[in-house]
Design a protein around this nucleic acid. Structure first.
Length: 392
DNA sequence: TCTGGGGTCCTAGGACCC
DNA sequence: TCTGGGGTCCTAGGACCC
């Protein structure tokens, strides 16, 4: 049976949701990301803003220079998730085999669904219309026999388009495209490939697999296969997260230990809250530290006992910080990461068990409040900002 | 130009064990 | 005294994606 894979990509998703929330934005240059004077980057830009050269991941200050009249919006991320669920729901009506790769992107496996939805091209067309009709959102779709090809096709179809690559045409379709079009080939890899004379996907097709493998290891073998539009596996698909993290970039670089401690505490609390929400404990806690000069270091360490407790995570993160920090430099960013999850209960002596139970009760109450009123409704002592009343 | 925040995966060296 | 080889785990860093 011939595989039928659709890749669906929402057009300017965040901006489009903002337009639904506030129709007066429609047709304007809109940039979601935050304060244009701050240190953020563009998360999503309307097509009107893109006319001025504004792109995703561009520093907001630069976007402001290119498009001074744009409306800058911080972003309503909870709303984006809601709309993402609505879209997911529509996808599920076409096939049970839906892989949401991010809030605004999914693969649909329609293999064997011909009787239900007709040929892939028709099914894709119906899908685009249904989404537009039921949500007001627009999307682009790629259709082919594999994930890579459909992904690249939907990219070329943007905005609001549909591109179908018929069976046995995959390699010929890919051949003329620049190698950078291949998902997984970024700036760095592109540069390495160019040195070897691989400018297009067709160039990669003409190399011997063994040569690519010798030069690039596992990646070389991967590239050779993908260049012909072949997927072995659908996706490296995990239903549970492998790591969770929070990080923050300060509005301006910081040397004050008090502020650093507060930030680490706040990040630890957010992280712990999410670990409990996922029902897991972390065996490894990590710290990310970016200096003013953008030099970035990370440290991680296995903790004595798996944990999901605010204070223990903070302790671990702060220990790593003290062992790592170079006092001569100011800090731009701090991050805390948890990984190596276990759902196993930990062994604790009686004293520990009692303490943890008390702690657990307090945190349970805090979590309840947070899920109703938002994370910052409850703050533990260390991250209470000086001179500011806690919000509850 | 001045570089977010949340993730995943891969590589490579060293420790450690058999 | 000089010296294996393989396997796995841990940690740090980096490329990439949205």
């Amino acid at each position: 049976m011939i595989r039928q894979i659709l890749h669906v990509d929402m057009d300017a998703f965040y901006v489009s949701v903002e337009e639904l929330l506030d129709p007066s934005l429609t047709g304007k240059a809109v940039i979601v990301g935050g304060d244009p004077e701050g240190r953020g980057v563009v998360a999503s830009a309307s097509y009107e803003a893109r006319k001025f050269g504004v792109r995703s991941a561009m520093p907001l200050q630069q976007a402001k220079r290119r498009c001074p009249h744009a409306v800058f919006i911080r972003g309503h991320y909870a709303k984006y998730s809601e709309w993402s669920s609505k879209i997911h729901h529509i996808f599920s009506r076409f096939t049970p085999l839906v892989e949401m790769v991010s809030v605004d992107e999914a693969y649909l496996d329609l293999t064997g669904c011909n009787l239900l939805h007709g040929p892939a091209l028709r099914a894709a067309d119906t899908l685009i219309r249904t989404i537009k009709q039921e949500t007001g959102l627009r999307c682009s779709v790629g259709a082919s026999t594999s994930h890579v090809v459909s992904k690249i096709a939907s990219d070329l179809a943007k905005p609001h388009g549909l591109m179908c690559v018929f069976p046995a045409c995959e390699a010929a379709f890919l051949a003329p495209l620049p190698i950078r079009r291949m998902p997984g080939v970024g700036k760095v890899t592109e540069a390495k490939l160019l040195i070897l004379g691989i400018k297009t996907i067709g160039d990669a097709q003409r190399r011997r697999r063994e040569d690519l493998e010798r030069q690039f290891g596992k990646f070389g073998e991967w590239l050779h296969r993908k260049a012909f539009g072949q997927d072995i596996e659908a996706y490296a698909w995990h239903d549970s997260a492998r790591s969770l993290s929070h990080e923050t970039t300060f509005p301006s670089d910081v040397a004050d230990l008090e502020i650093i401690q507060q930030a680490l505490s706040h990040l630890s609390q957010r992280l712990a809250y999410r670990l409990r929400d996922h029902g897991v404990k972390a065996q490894t806690i990590g710290l990310k530290l970016r200096y003013a000069n953008f030099q970035t270091v990370s440290r991680e360490r296995a903790v004595p006992q798996p944990t999901c407790l605010d204070y223990e995570i903070f302790q671990a993160a702060f220990d790593l910080f003290r062992a790592t920090y170079d006092r001569r430099q100011k800090v731009r960013l701090l991050g805390v990461r948890a990984s190596h999850f276990t759902s196993q209960p930990r062994q604790a002596d009686l004293f520990e068990a009692e303490r943890e139970q008390k702690m657990g009760r307090a945190l349970y109450t805090a979590d309840q409040l947070r899920s109703r009123f938002g994370f910052d409704a409850v703050r533990l002592a260390r991250s209470l900002d000086k001179g500011r009343e806690p919000s509850s």
